[in-house]
Design a binder for these strands. Sequence first.
DNA 1: CTGAAAGTTTAGCATTGGCTAAACCTATTG
DNA 2: CAATAGGTTTAGCCAATGCTAAACTTTCAG
Lengths: 146, 146
Amino acid sequence: MPQRTKKPGAAKTRSVAFRRIRADHSSELAEDYVELIADLIDEKGEARGSDVAMRLGVANATVVKTLKRLQDAGLVTQEPYRSIFLTGEGWKMAEDGRRKHKIVEAFLLALGVSEETARIDSEGIEHHVSEETLRAMARFLARKVM
Amino acid sequence: MPQRTKKPGAAKTRSVAFRRIRADHSSELAEDYVELIADLIDEKGEARGSDVAMRLGVANATVVKTLKRLQDAGLVTQEPYRSIFLTGEGWKMAEDGRRKHKIVEAFLLALGVSEETARIDSEGIEHHVSEETLRAMARFLARKVM
DNA sequence: CTGAAAGTTTAGCATTGGCTAAACCTATTG
DNA sequence: CAATAGGTTTAGCCAATGCTAAACTTTCAG
């Protein structure tokens, strides 16, 4: 590899990073929704819009509107006044989110952070960690456990 | 249903977490801007809108519009066709962002992640780590170095 | 089986953050 | 010192995400 005495690509990498963050943001909400819906289905057998609203801390109407977009995106299905279902793709996204979430949260706990903080921070961080970083976190956990 | 022996506050904490993430998002852009402006001033002596646009990977017009908001928020000052300055508050925010950024990036590197990934991921993560997590990261770094 | 309470959706609005194209300054050069 | 090239701003558009209030369904008690 290159013998970089000093990070020549730093400036270019930045706009790449920022672009990725903006892209992440659009999918972030979708991921939060499907992950939450999956949890609700597992926990209570069904996911209702108002449960989602409550847990996300957002108005009911907002959820309705967002679900419409998610339906267009092929992640969920829903009929008016009924509960919400995930499509195959929706489940896939939910599972992936849960996987990341678990790793990040466990990692933060292993780092010595409190449960409360681990829960809160992992929610924010999970959408911004690359697979490489996840692997590093998993490695750290494995080492710790041994 | 099952008697949840653990984490009674988990559900409530979630909406707290999501609320915080939404709040983070509004300040995130502002932090990125002021941090970048600070870097530009340090690097080249002045920050021009077009430099900001280039590094963030957005259109010039977008920067103009955002700077107007930042000016209203008391973070920057600018006159038309001139370069951008940070207010005292702007500098404070920039310094804080840099501090977080440095810790997160160094931490990721110490975890064994590549430079490229550390740069990209830290940009996304820095806005979502609490002070507690930052402290844990700093602790980890200190231990590593010894 | 009916009517009101509870739960959902629609309507309409605001803000943020993006874009392109056109208008507008500034500054350089001939 | 004027013309123009190039950088900046304005205008006007769009999509996403949030809200409240009003309209509409469902459900359940009586």
